[in-house]
Simulated assay, not measured.
Amino acid sequence: MGKKRIGVLLSGCGVFDGSEIHEAVLTLLYIDQKGAAAVCMAPDISQVHVINHLTRKEMKENRNVLVESARIARGDIKNLKDVSAVDIDALIIPGGVGAVKNLSEFAAKGPEGSVNAEVLRLISETKAAGKPIGALCIAPATLGMALKDHGITVTIGNDKATISSIKATGTNHIVCTVDQIAVDEKHKIVTVPAYMLGPGIKDVAKGIEKLVDKIVEMA
């Protein structure tokens, strides 16, 4: 039997406009340590905007989500439209604001926003196939929007405004500490607060390792 294939859905490169790099790299590290294979992917779309991570101000330029995500994947990445649930045994979505800006409209429109069509397709396919899905940090908000008719249970930490918006999608929320994971056994959903709580890389690493372990076990 070959290695379990764990899809990693990226949303760019950088916490303020793409994937949170620490979360993405830790996810890839733990997948590899578990003897599984990461299948990185991202949608071939323009970022909502580009943020200067030094000044945290918007820059007047355009960047592509797939091209930027390829930085994290060291170039070994697939266009999301070319990936289906049959290609993976599980799916993990790292956080970073790109997860709710580029993968969905949660950051701009809250629970009234839409999910990118290809993101929605893959999440729906993976769920329908009975394969586990993990989401880190703020990414459970997009997952909740995509699966709003299923009543899944997630965590994004303890931010009351974000919790309220997530609940408005019909998603259940439980508060977890940074080193705890929320496991929805019924729906095979595993989530972790990561940098929604932080404060540092050693802290978020504990929860992310538990999430990856659980996802690989369930796959």
Rank of each mutant, 00 (worst) to 15 (best):
N52H: 08
A36K: 10
N79I: 07
L120C: 01
I123R: 08
F106L: 05
V65E: 06
K101C: 05
I45E: 00
A42S: 00
K78P: 00
I133Y: 03
K131D: 09
N116H: 14
L29I: 14
S104Y: 05
E61Y: 02
A128G: 13
G110S: 02
A108Q: 13
A129H: 12
K109S: 06
L29T: 15
A38H: 08
L66V: 05
G110H: 07
T126G: 05
A38R: 07
D82A: 12
I31G: 11
V50Q: 06
T126L: 03
K101Q: 10
E112I: 03
R74D: 09
A139G: 12
I31P: 14
S69G: 05
P43W: 01
L136Q: 15
A139H: 14
K78A: 11
V97E: 04
G96L: 00
F106I: 04
A36N: 12
R63K: 15
Q47E: 00
A129W: 06
D32I: 02
A129I: 08
I88F: 07
I45C: 01
E125K: 00
I51A: 08
D89H: 13
G113H: 12
I138P: 08
V50P: 03
Q33R: 15
G96W: 06
A135V: 13
A73T: 07
V86M: 02
Y30C: 09
I31Q: 04
V100G: 01
F106R: 01
A70E: 07
G95A: 04
C137H: 09
V48K: 15
C137E: 10
P111A: 14
V48N: 01
E61G: 02
Q47K: 14
E118M: 06
I88E: 12
P43F: 04
I31N: 09
I92P: 12
I88Q: 09
V67L: 11
L91C: 07
I31R: 13
S124V: 05
A70F: 03
Q47C: 04
L29A: 11
N62G: 12
L54D: 10
N62Q: 15
N116W: 07
A135R: 10
S46G: 08
D44I: 02
K109F: 10
C137G: 10
A129L: 10
L103S: 04
D82E: 14
P140A: 12
I51F: 06
T126E: 02
A90Y: 06
Y30W: 15
M59Y: 01
G95E: 07
D87L: 03
L66N: 11
N62V: 15
V83W: 04
E118V: 11
S104H: 08
T55E: 11
M59H: 00
A85T: 13
H49W: 09
G95W: 05
I92W: 09
G35Y: 02
A135I: 11
A37H: 11
L80R: 09
M59A: 10
T55G: 11
L122P: 11
P111M: 02
V39A: 03
R56Y: 05
K101R: 15
V65H: 12
I138C: 13
N102K: 12
L91P: 11
P111F: 14
R71M: 01
G75R: 03
L136A: 13
V115A: 04
G113Q: 10
S124F: 02
